[in-house]
Amino acid sequence: MKINLEYRKKIIKTTIVVILALLFLISLIWFASTFKQLYRTGNLEVDYSITGRPTRLHRPITISDIRVWMTFDYLNVIFKVDPLYFKNTLAITDSKYPNISIEAYARHNRINPQVLLHNIEQAIINYPNNK
């Protein structure tokens, strides 16, 4: 009986170790693959060195970087847009503007977030200072 218990404990321990080892191997491959992909796309180049000096031209933010969690206030700052531009162009009447996220605005007004995202992207492309 005691031998059976010891044997069972050994089997369980070996199983746990094998599973952890496999998970480790999979994670290592996944990490290496992510690193390689990010390195190739230039995402691992720093904008500023530890001394605070710029090391490369700051990658300009583009419309493909816009996400639904971003607020209109944030978009105004990073795209250097007039604070009332989105309000006028997209006919936003929400009193919280610009302190409201794209996702929250879409939810309150029952708009598809992806459709709103597309409209915002078009508004930025058509912004007078971008021409």
Binding site: V17, A21, T34, L38, N43, V46, D47, H58, R59
Partner: peptide, 28 residues
């Protein structure tokens, strides 16, 4: 965050992967 700027989401993904790897090593 400050060094990678606009690429922070990509770098954060890498850090997340590394954390998983690190904890699996500890657990092992």
């Amino acid at each position: 965050g400050y060094s990678f700027g606009d690429s922070w989401q990509a770098v954060n993904k890498l850090i997340g992967n590394f954390s998983i790897l690190f904890f699996l090593v500890i657990a092992l």
